[in-house]
Simulated assay, not measured.
Amino acid sequence: MQWAFTLGVIVVGIATIRPMGFSGRGLAVVVLVALNSLFLLGRNVPQDRVPARVVVVWASLGIVAAASLIGAARTGTGYLFAFFLVGHIGYRLPPVGAVPLAALAGGLCGGVLYLHLGPGHESLSWGVGLCAALPVVVGIVSRSRQRAIDAVIESAESAERAARAEARTAALAERSRIARDVHDVLAHSLAGINMQLELVDALLDTGDLTRIREANDRAHSLVKESLKQAQWTVHALREDTLPLLGSLTAMIESSGHRDALTVDGTVREPPARVVQHLLRIAQEALTNAARHAPGGDVRVEVTFAAASTTLRIRNGPATREAAGAGSGMGLIGMRERIAMVDGTLTAGPITEGPDRGGWQVEAVIPE
């Protein structure tokens, strides 16, 4: 659009401005038209490629050339060069620099006509020359509007970048959640199954069929437990709503304990997100108890307070040989989960009471 206006002004000027020739005043008019055309074409140069000082020099020379053309031409539309140049000065420069140049343009163009410094005064009033300063207002308004549009675009781009960063963060958080769930399901179960199978392999040489069957049965039990845990994980990844107490009861019974759940307070169903994390913490704690304290008693307590839900898992000392040290990722995963719902988690050995020598995990989630 800007190129079209510029070329239109040049074409109209060449078609209407007189005299034009190869000698005398006609040659001077031709040269001035050419100079004004060059200065006017300069407004199409991208703003970021021209320093502000160069723009001021270019605009000043263009104003002088436009005023000279108004005075030298007898007839035509030479004044359009001044009008469009001043308008672009208002757009290209800040008001503190554009207004003085516009005043200079109005003063020169009006003065040339008022003082009759050429034949141009015969067809144009000196008031037209003074009006050459007015298009600066249009340029300033256009500049302000463009700045506002650029600010909106930049804000939108910034918001889009922030949204992409948030999406990446959410994706990483989801990967961490899936990694925790996979660890909860597979790490302990596969380690236990592998240990039983290695035991079976070692017992084959002894021919002790009784112990081989016991180890094989324990491996089968671990496989069944792993399948149940996998089902819970699928539910969690799908974000299905699971009943807290019903799921805890099934989880405790599948781990080989009966009547181990105690509920205090007014029973209610916490938010799905809270239930999901409590179940995963309970699963991890029960798995740790089975691995590190096999044969020990397990008690699970759920307390519904006015502003929080508390889950407490206690296990007594082992009565059989433990499977060995774990990876340490289970407790880290529980702490990560509790932090996601602004809760607190404490875990440590029990130093007194009937469960002395055992372990306790307590998770408190505010609501």
Rank of each mutant, 00 (worst) to 15 (best):
M1R: 07
M1S: 13
W3N: 04
V11T: 13
V12I: 15
V12W: 15
I14F: 11
I14W: 11
A15L: 15
M20Q: 15
G21R: 13
S23Y: 11
V29Q: 05
L32S: 02
A34E: 04
L35Y: 07
L35R: 05
G42R: 12
N44M: 14
Q47T: 06
P51W: 02
V56N: 03
V57F: 11
V64K: 00
S68M: 07
G71N: 06
R74Y: 14
G78E: 06
F81M: 05
F81K: 03
L101P: 01
G106Q: 03
G106Y: 01
C109R: 00
G110C: 04
G111F: 12
L115D: 10
L117W: 11
H121E: 12
V128M: 13
C131W: 02
A132M: 00
A132Q: 00
A132V: 03
G139K: 00
G139F: 00
I140R: 00
I140K: 00
V141N: 09
V141K: 11
A148K: 08
A151Y: 12
S155H: 15
E157T: 10
A170K: 14
A173R: 15
D181W: 12
L186H: 14
L190F: 15
L190C: 12
L190W: 13
N194L: 13
M195T: 14
E198D: 15
D201L: 10
A202N: 15
L203E: 03
L203S: 08
D205M: 08
L209I: 12
T210C: 07
I212C: 07
N216P: 01
A219T: 04
L222Y: 09
K224T: 14
A230K: 03
T233M: 15
L237T: 06
R238D: 10
L242Q: 11
L242A: 08
P243G: 05
L244D: 01
L244T: 05
L245H: 10
T249G: 08
I252E: 01
I252Y: 02
D259R: 10
A260M: 08
D264P: 01
R268F: 14
E269R: 04
V274W: 01
Q276S: 12
Q276P: 01
H277L: 13
H277D: 08
L278R: 03
Q283I: 04
T287Y: 05
R291C: 01
H292F: 15
A293Q: 08
P294V: 05
A305L: 13
A305W: 06
A306S: 15
T310L: 11
R320L: 11
A322Q: 08
G328K: 08
M329V: 13
G330T: 03
G330I: 01
I332F: 06
I338A: 09
A339I: 09
G343P: 06
G348C: 04
G348P: 03
I350P: 06
E352S: 14
G353L: 05
P354D: 13
Q360Y: 02
V361Y: 08
E362F: 08
